[in-house]
Write a protein that binds this DNA or RNA. Structure first.
Length: 466
RNA sequence: GCCCCCAUCGUCUAGUGGCUAGGACACCGCUCUUUCAAGGCGGAAACACCGGUUCGACUCCGGUUGGGGGCGCCA
């Protein structure tokens, strides 16, 4: 039975890297008809925040990455406590009374000697008398005894990796009975929850031997490990807030679609042998395999994310987009005629990269555009000529009956004004309606705006040139 | 400093001893066209370096260089 988990600490919003880890765990579980668990690793009371837990959950669900069960480590303290006690009674874990200052000095000393910093094991050799004395005078933490050995890990992505536990030393598994640390709580939960495959970021590779040591001390089963390469920013540094919106909730705000994000992160470090690039979630489940995961870090390329977003946006029906944007349209423009918005969407979706852009770029459907008179000038034509053509345009528009005020009719009639240089009529007309250098075609816009407002805007343009 | 991982166009990647080194994004042309998109067509663009192994290396081995990750009473 395949059981995977995504185990974030709620110390920040869900980022692209985390989302990809969650996705891969989810895909692998679904592909193998197994289970996928979300486990919040909130043992660090200072840094963990409920709001981040919410953000992670909501983001996952928004992406359609559904988990089968949910756990919170802060609710499992008793379990860890018992296990610490058990290990202590077996002599595998001991109390360490060294102060932070002592430890720091030791570490600096070791680094200056060019050796890997590690704990000396001093407190493991304390006598009963010394222990009881220190218990009354000092605070302590729990360390686990680490036998020197070459620990071999068969990582499903990296292959065989060997660690020398001599370089690790006795490490701390808990700050107190009630405060287990990551490298203890994580492997314990993995074992207790029947996790078969631990799929996580490469930053955890060096934690793996420690976690295996814990598991071995506890006689608990060791899962398979698969360490994903990191996702880097364009400057090859670790992905962070500095590099723009990389949290899922921010991307959502920016108007990205979940299917675009899924498709994008899927291809960040994973690829089939084919040239295929477009995957729905279900198709991804079908195609996914750990073997095809890349070993080297991938650089996050926002342009491609935008491309995917446009791809999926282009393929959505206007009514689907309406349901995704209606609320925002309504709020931004204080307007709620669905059929009107639907027409706008139909026209604007081809030009927008994101939902947000679609909404913002459609402002001229809701308010009078403001622009410089010079923008009306087409191809260096004299402004008197432009004005003349705008007046002719006005005339033609007024002559079209309300019920015939559609793109085809408007275009047909206006084309007659300057058949040899259509831009002379079309360009100023379009600017009059939008105030923009670039926009959808004027006929569609006019027809959505309606005869009255169209005429009004053309009149205003004429005024600008007077 | 020490440990671990990695290395094909700018980016994401295909490639598992013999290929004109393929695709996608981005970029640049052309086309369409009132503008901008979208579409169509085309272009430029990569095997980090040095040694081996081999009839033959992008592919295998070693080293160099470069990049990434880790070395917490964080996760």
């Amino acid at each position: 039975m395949v059981v995977t988990r995504f185990a974030p600490s709620p110390t920040g919003k869900l980022h692209l890297g985390g989302a990809r880890t969650a996705l891969f765990n989810f895909l692998f579980a679904r592909k193998n008809k197994g289970k996928f668990i979300l486990r919040i690793e909130d043992t660090d009371k200072e840094r963990s925040k409920k709001e981040f837990e919410e953000d992670i959950k909501n983001s996952l669900l928004w992406l359609n990455i559904e988990f089968d069960s949910f756990f919170r480590q802060s609710e499992r303290i008793e379990t860890y406590k018992e296990l610490i006690k058990k290990l202590q009674s077996e002599g595998k874990v001991y109390k360490c009374f060294c102060t932070k200052e002592e430890l720091e000095a030791q570490k600096l000393e070791q680094i200056s000697q060019g050796i890997a910093p590690r704990y000396s094991g001093r407190c493991s050799k304390l006598t009963k008398e010394e222990i009881s004395f220190f218990e009354r005078t000092r605070s302590y933490v729990f360390r686990i005894k680490v036998e020197p050995q070459k620990l071999e890990i068969n990582d499903l992505i990296k292959g065989k990796v060997i660690f020398d536990t001599l370089l690790i030393g006795d490490f701390i598994i808990a700050k107190s009975e009630e405060e287990p640390l990551f490298n203890f709580a994580t492997p314990v939960d993995d074992a207790l929850m029947g996790i078969s495959h631990v799929i996580r970021g490469e930053d955890h590779l060096s934690n793996t031997p420690k976690q295996i040591i814990v598991l071995k001390s506890l006689n608990m089963p060791i899962p398979q490990y698969a360490h994903l390469p990191m996702i880097l920013s364009k400057d090859y540094s670790k992905l962070s807030k500095r590099h723009g919106a990389t949290s899922i909730s921010e991307l959502k705000e920016e108007g990205f679609l979940p299917e675009a994000i899924i498709n994008f992160i899927l291809l960040l470090g994973w690829h089939e042998s084919s040239d295929r690039e477009i995957y729905s979630l279900n198709e991804a489940i079908e195609a996914f395999s750990l073997e095809r995961i890349q070993k080297k870090p991938a650089v996050f390329n926002e342009k491609k994310l935008i491309w995917f977003n446009r791809y999926y946006l282009l393929r959505k029906s206007p009514s689907e987009i309406l349901s995704l944007t209606y609320k925002d349209f309504k709020e931004k423009y204080n307007f709620q005629d669905e059929s009107y918005i639907l027409k706008i969407i139909n026209l604007a979706k081809e030009r927008a990269s994101t939902l947000k852009e679609l909404i913002e770029n459609s402002f001229y459907f809701f308010e009078e555009p403001d622009y410089k008179p010079e923008l009306l000038i087409w191809n260096k034509a004299p402004s008197t000529a432009i004005k003349e053509f705008l007046e002719k345009t006005l005339n033609v528009l007024e002559g079209i009956e309300e019920k015939e005020f559609n793109p085809e009719k408007i275009k047909l009639e206006l084309s007659k004004l300057s058949p040899n240089d259509l831009g002379l009529v079309f360009w100023p007309f379009r600017v009059a309606l939008t105030g923009l250098e670039a926009s959808p075609g004027p006929f569609e816009i006019a027809s959505i705006l309606g005869k009255e407002r169209t005429i009004q805007r053309v009149k205003k343009a004429i005024e600008k040139l007077s």
